[in-house]
Amino acid sequence: MSKSSRKSIVASFGMLSAELESKLPDDQQQAAPPAPAPRVGAGVIGATHRAIEEIRTERDLLKALVESGGGAIRELDPSLIDPSPYPDRLPDDDAAGFEAFKRSIETEGQKVPVQVRKHPSSPGRYQIVYGHRRWLAAKQLGKPVRAIEVEISDLDLVVAQGIENASRQDLTWIERALFASRMDDAGIKPRDIYAALSIDDAELAKMRSVYRSVPIDVIEAIGRAPKIGRPRWLEFSKTIANDPESLSTARQVLSEARERSSVSDQRFQRALEAIKPSSKVDQDSTAISDASGRKLGAWKISPKEVRISADGPLGVEFVKFVGDELPALIERFSRQREN
């Protein structure tokens, strides 16, 4: 098989999956709206039309193979399947969505098969190309998972997974950036990353500025952060790039946030606020230091609010201490008012 046909078949896998999933009820999948077409030259349009016709032909062949059975769809024991070596999701704080998804599979069955390949190093086992949620749902339900087995290289696997991701709306910006990072680590060429994630050079540069500055353990500690978009992630990474020592503060804040069972967006916000450079100290601000002279931060009081800013990990501990002491202060305030 030629290199060009191999790539177009990989693209067809993603398009076929998107087409099949568009037939599911809204609670299982949502079809992505078509992206507006940019203005391009006539030569490019002609080449694009020819490529689309080739893809449609291959897609129709694949679809016919799936619908006719023909040994294409198999039922596999989910315990024999391992996730993709290039994960594209971060842990989700809200388990309710997945539980609803799992119930729909339990009651209505698995309508769209997952795609798997033979495990490259473990005979008798498989790896997921895509369809991780369907596989996990079947595994937790104790049911066989319906799967299509394909022969696919590591390179094609990660590109096919990216193509399938591009049609999904539920991946957050940082999940897409993290997937780009894994493609980068796998030696995928930038032009293939562009195609897989439907992004351009400028967007990949922004993603790289984040995942090359923010360590993976910090990103995973924050999680999906569905309400946090590109601008705030760029601010977060820029702050860390300018002050590498702020990483220890971020890790400490995230560890404490985990213990408090805060959600992903809150964890991001707390970490960002803890490491952001303090704005210029107003004349009314007062430095806070401990008995040995170590600076903890600063505080400022106005008629309507008191602001305390932390300086370093010790300052973060102090702010947490003040928060824990607030109930006792309120009680003292109430007693004083009564007297």
Rank of each mutant, 00 (worst) to 15 (best):
K3M: 14
S4H: 01
K7Y: 02
L16S: 05
L16R: 02
E21M: 07
S22R: 10
K23Q: 01
L24F: 03
Q29R: 06
P36Q: 01
R39V: 11
I45C: 05
A47Q: 05
I52S: 04
L61A: 08
L62M: 02
L65N: 00
D77H: 00
D88K: 12
R89A: 05
R89L: 05
F101H: 12
K102M: 14
S104Y: 10
I105L: 10
S122T: 13
S122K: 13
P123R: 10
G131C: 13
P144K: 05
E149Y: 04
Q161N: 04
G162N: 06
R168N: 06
T172L: 08
F179S: 04
R182C: 05
M183T: 06
D184W: 06
I188M: 12
R191Q: 14
A195N: 02
E203K: 08
S209I: 10
V210W: 14
Y211P: 09
S213A: 10
V218Q: 08
I219S: 07
R224C: 09
L234F: 00
A241L: 00
A241K: 03
E245W: 14
T249S: 09
V263I: 12
L272M: 13
A274D: 15
K280I: 09
S289K: 04
D290L: 00
A291S: 03
G293H: 03
G297F: 02
P303L: 04
R307K: 10
A310I: 03
V316E: 15
G323E: 15
A328D: 13
A328I: 15
